[in-house]
């Protein structure tokens, strides 16, 4: 079943996407199809299957607690769209 225009608008806001009216209809239909497929999968009997949180396997992989400063910190700043002094600069956000 297609997602409502309101649901699509909500998801678009969360994902910071601007979409046109035509796209709202199209995405509603496409996402609806994907969710219908998920519904179909949900019909399978998984009572004897452990929930999969990861496909990496259950082995713990740790890093020891040692500091190694990254030598290219300044380059990371230079790659930013905007900066001011030692800071990354972004559009004004006030919460």
């Amino acid at each position: 079943m297609a997602l409502s225009e309101k649901e699509i608008e909500h998801v678009a806001i969360l994902a910071r996407l601007e979409i046109s009216a035509a796209e709202k209809t199209r995405f509603g239909k496409e996402l609806g199809q994907i969710l219908d497929y998920v519904e179909k999968i949900k019909g399978l009997d998984t009572s004897r299957v452990d929930p999969t949180a990861s496909v990496l396997g259950d082995e713990d992989v740790f890093r020891e607690d040692a500091v190694r400063l990254f030598p290219g910190a300044a380059a990371l700043l230079d790659n930013a769209p905007d900066k001011e002094g030692p800071f990354f600069k972004v559009k004004k956000v006030v919460e």
Binding site: R63, A66, R68, A73, L76, L77, G85, F88
Partner: peptide
């Protein structure tokens, strides 16, 4: 800890120069 949760940057940079303690992991590269 000495280092950050998921990378080797220092976890004790209080008072350090801004963005002197960053790497590709904690800046989301």
């Amino acid at each position: 800890t000495e280092s950050k949760l998921f990378c080797a940057c220092s976890a004790r940079s209080f008072g350090a120069a801004a963005n002197s303690n960053v790497c590709p992991v904690c800046t989301g590269q």
